[in-house]
Write a protein that binds this DNA or RNA. Sequence first.
DNA 1: ACCTGAACACCGTTCAAGT
DNA 2: ACCTGAACACCGTTCAAGT
Lengths: 246, 246
Amino acid sequence: MPAKTNVSTEPSKQRRGRKPTGSPDALTKQRIVAAGLTLLDVQGAHGFSVRDLARALDVYPASIYWHMGSRNGLLAAMVAAVLADVAPIETHTRWQDWLRDLFGRYRAAIRCHPQAAALIGAQLVSNASIDFDLIEAILRTLSDAGFRDARLREAFSVVMAAQVGFVTTEFAPAPEEHAEQWSADMQGLIHSVDATRCPILAANLDQMTNQSFALRWENGRTAPMDTAFRLYVDTVIAGLEVLARQ
Amino acid sequence: MPAKTNVSTEPSKQRRGRKPTGSPDALTKQRIVAAGLTLLDVQGAHGFSVRDLARALDVYPASIYWHMGSRNGLLAAMVAAVLADVAPIETHTRWQDWLRDLFGRYRAAIRCHPQAAALIGAQLVSNASIDFDLIEAILRTLSDAGFRDARLREAFSVVMAAQVGFVTTEFAPAPEEHAEQWSADMQGLIHSVDATRCPILAANLDQMTNQSFALRWENGRTAPMDTAFRLYVDTVIAGLEVLARQ
DNA sequence: ACCTGAACACCGTTCAAGT
DNA sequence: ACCTGAACACCGTTCAAGT
C-alpha cells in the first residue's frame, strides 16, 4: 500500500462533543453503511479501512466499532444493503424467465457498487441475515421446473453458484497500483502469442483483447461483458432445462 | 484482527549474515512461493502477511520484496503455482469430457490449497503469466463443439466463469474469528424459518443445513459439495450442447 | 546481486473514561 | 447508551547501507 497523505486520527475541530440523539447527523447503522458504500466505491475493497470511514463520518474509529462490532460485521452489513432488492417480485412467469430476471437483477445490483463484488463471491459472510424468502422463491422456481428432493437441493446450489460466479469474475478488481504500466505489459504479452502454436487464439486475438476473461486488464466497471453474460445465463438455463427432464 | 503473540521483527540470532548463493536454503522465488503456500494454508488469505512469511523464512521482509516486488506480485506467483497443472493433457476425447476434466482438475487444484480460492475468483491478477496453451485448448474444444466467431469468444468467457464460479464460492472462507459462536447463531437462525411462509425450504431444511450455499457455516474444505458440483458441471455442459446446436 | 536494519505511514481492535 | 482519546500490536513498503 503506497503512502497516503498524512491525516490526523482525530475528528475535525469543528465538531467537538456529541450530536444529540435525535439529530439528523447522529451516528446510526444506516448512516454508517451508506457512508461505507460510498467510500467503498472510491477506495475499492482492498483500500477500504474503518479509520477512513471514521474520518469521513467525523468520528473516532471506536464509534464505528460500537455500532458494527467489527470490520467484517460492517462489510457484511454493506453487502446486505447492496443485495437488498435482488429477489424478483413477480412470480407467475415461466421459471426460465424468473431465473433470467434473478441473474440480471443480481448483476444490476453489483453494477451499482462493483467494488462489493470482491466481498461476496470470495467471502462466506452472508451471515446474520439470510434471505429466506429468496431461498424459498428459488426452490419454488426449481420445483416448477421439475426438480425434486436431492436433485432440487443440488439445483439450488447450482443456481446460487451460477448467480454469483460470472459477475464476481467480471467485476474482480484490477491492481490499481501501476495501472498504466500493467496494461502496457499485458498488451505486449498478449501480442507475443505464437500463431502457429495457438492458431485459434491468434485468429481471435484482437476481438478478445481486453474483452475476454484472462485477456483483459480492465474489469466490468469500465469494460462490461454484456453479451458474454447473456450467453452465460442462456447456458445455465438451457442446462437446467435438460437436467430437469431427466 | 486479534492480537498475535508478540514476536520480533528480526531474523533469529542463529543465522546472522547471508547464506552462500548456491546454498540449499538460499532465497529464491521458488522457495518463497512454496513457503508462502504453506503459510497461506494455515493462516488463510486474510491473515497472510509478508512479515510472517519473512519470519518463516528467517529473513527480513525487504528480502522478499527484492525477489517478488510487492505483496500482490507474491500472491500472483502463488496462484500461478497452484494452477500450474490444471490444463488437461489428453486431447482426443469428446469435447464434453474434456471440459468435465478441466473443471474437475481446477477443483482438485484448489482443494490442495483451498485458501487460494479467495485470491482467484475475486482478483484479476492472473497477470504476468497467461497460459496461452490452456486458452487455445479451450478455444479448440469449443470450436469442436461447434461454436464460431463471436459465439466462440463468448463461449470462452462462459467456460472461464463456470470454471471459477462454483469452486470460488464452495471454498469461500468462513469468518474464523468466533467460529463456534457463529455456527451456533447460524443454526439458531436457520431453525427459526417460518414453515407456512417457506414450506419448500422447511421441508428440505435438515438436508440443506450446512450443505447448501447460503445455509452453511463451513466451507468446502471441511464440507465438500461433491454432488452439487457434479450437477453444476452437468448443467453447464448440457447448456453448451444446446447452444452449440443453435 | 542480494540482503540487513531501521524507518514511515498506516492498519484493526480494545478499553478506560467521559457525558 | 453512545462516544472520546489514547493505547497496543500489528501491517506493507521504502531506502540507505552493508557484503
